[in-house]
């Protein structure tokens, strides 16, 4: 595919973001059944069908350039969105290697990586970058290795150090988050940074997840979905900027909700890193407008049922309780009560 594949759009101010029909078809709808509750729900992060968001290790889609431009603006306004504790530099190099090798392999028209010993040349055509540097030598890159590569990769990233039978969130690039603060959480252990999540602790979800992740193997990444709701296509729904984006939640009506309310899906994957033994955690956010989503009848029926029946504590934690009734009212127009098929793939009717 050529470089004209990438759209020019905004995630702020005039909000010109939208999904093409093809992007809607490949949207990672997160609900495999008509109801939702927390679970560990991890599966191997293996290559999926051609054209799906799982086709490649790191999905590059039509929003790539616009998302990278938005990230650069967030970092200009608040550099603390990207932090790495001093012992995490090696993990940053591991991540840089993983991403560069994956993208050069999966998207050879757009990315190239050439190695002569430790002398590497990275070419990123969509972003018009060509960089020669020495692998493992920080002074040869304009940023630290994690920041350098994640300024060129969609999705948030955290790096977890593993020690004392725990995972510690000791580095991250976090500009497209569902309302959590890297600056506040950096340095926390697994249960600490998940502390605010309701119900899941009592269900044992985090104990099981941690046990599973401590044994994560090199070359065997796993993935899971998470989701929330976002009014207007804002990538940067951070607690830091909550006073800026919070008021929009009070402006939804039945007339504008289809256009302004977005389902926000995170495709999260976890990768053991080779040198540092850290775990990389990409959190890739996909946005879809309700009016885009309801073009898939199965998804429309199912989302209606999920939102209608979700536990109020979860709706509160995910920040959409105040608009839940309105969402249900809008979505009910597209639910004729017919059964839905298992699994989340869309189906033509």
């Amino acid at each position: 595919m050529g470089l004209d594949f990438f759209k020019q759009e905004t995630f702020r101010d005039d909000y010109t973001f939208r999904n093409s029909p093809e992007a809607i078809r490949r949207f990672p709808f997160p609900f495999a059944e008509d109801s939702y509750m927390y679970s560990v729900n991890m599966e191997p992060h293996v290559a999926g069908p051609k054209g799906s968001v799982f086709e490649h290790m790191f999905d590059v889609d039509e929003h790539y350039l616009s998302e990278m431009r938005d990230r650069a603006m967030v970092l200009r306004d608040d550099p603390l969105r990207c932090q790495s504790l001093p012992h995490m530099t090696l993990a940053g190099w591991d991540l840089l290697e993983l991403i560069m090798e994956s993208k050069a392999r999966d998207y050879p028209d757009w990315f190239e990586l050439h190695k002569t010993g430790n002398r590497w040349t990275w070419i990123n055509r969509p972003m018009e970058i060509e960089q020669t540097f020495t692998f493992l030598n920080e002074s040869t890159l304009p940023h630290g290795p994690m920041e350098y590569i994640t300024r060129q990769t969609q999705g948030d990233f955290t790096l977890q150090d593993q020690r004392d039978n725990n995972l510690w969130i000791d580095a991250g690039m976090v500009t497209t988050q569902a309302d959590w603060s890297l600056d506040f959480d950096i340095g926390m252990g697994f249960h600490e940074w998940h502390a605010p999540v309701p119900h899941a602790h009592q269900m044992g979800v985090f104990d099981r997840a941690l046990k599973f992740l401590l044994k994560l193997q090199l070359g065997a990444p796993v993935r899971r979905f998470n989701w929330t709701m976002t009014v207007d296509p804002i990538l940067d729904t951070s607690p830091e900027t909550y006073p800026k984006w919070g008021p929009s939640k009070a402006t939804l009506t039945l007339d504008n909700i289809g256009h302004r309310q977005h389902l926000r899906v995170e495709l999260q994957s976890l990768h053991r890193l080779p040198r540092s033994n850290a775990i990389a955690f990409p959190i890739r956010a996909y946005l879809i407008k309700f009016e885009e989503l309801v073009t898939m009848p199965k998804w429309a029926r199912r989302l209606h049922r999920v939102v209608r029946d979700v536990h109020p504590d979860l709706a509160t934690y995910k920040g959409f309780l105040r608009n839940r009734d309105l969402m249900v009212q809008y979505l009910s127009q597209f639910d004729d009560g017919k059964p839905t098929s298992p699994g989340w793939w869309p189906e033509p009717e």
Partner: peptide
């Protein structure tokens, strides 16, 4: 000067609890 509610979420690195704007959605 923002009005903040006090969360129980605690950072050892900051040795502090987290305060979040309480009237962000309804100033």
């Amino acid at each position: 000067g923002l009005n903040l509610f006090v969360r129980d979420h605690y950072s050892r690195r900051h040795a502090a609890f987290q305060g979040v704007n309480i009237d962000a959605e309804d100033p």
